[in-house]
Amino acid sequence: MNALTAIGEVLVLIGTFFYLLSALGLIRMPDVYNRMQTSTKSATLGSLGVMIGVGIWALGEDFGSVAWLTKTIVIALFLLLTNPVSAHALIRAAYKSGIPLWEGSVMDKYREYIESKTRAPESEEGETPEEGGEE
């Protein structure tokens, strides 16, 4: 039980706490967008904490080696890069398939943007092929 082990354990604890918060947010939040907001952010952060924590924890143990930390850093980086992208795609798909915002929401700038962009009357929400994409 040295300093590295202690740091690792604290990081894992923080990570699991964020996992718990993320699960709580899934239950607690009113609509899809808020739920995605809470769950994605805190689950990503929690995973980072747990992974890096495990790597540092293994450094402190006598069986551990640097290989653990490098592997966990690689996994954490991958998760850090992929998780926001997948959350973005999910949210966007949810919006495009017409899932409404929470009734307490006050403004929807994205809807206004889409409507201002497609002045043509026959095109409704979610049917704008060129919007957002670069090609």
Binding site: L81, T82, P84, H88, A89, E130, G132, E134
Partner: peptide, 19 residues
């Protein structure tokens, strides 16, 4: 397919697919 992925998705795919 008609809808291109959003720019976040395409850029992310460009970065991630080789890895």
């Amino acid at each position: 397919a008609k809808t291109e992925g959003s720019i976040v998705l395409t850029t992310g795919t460009r970065l991630l697919a080789p890895f």
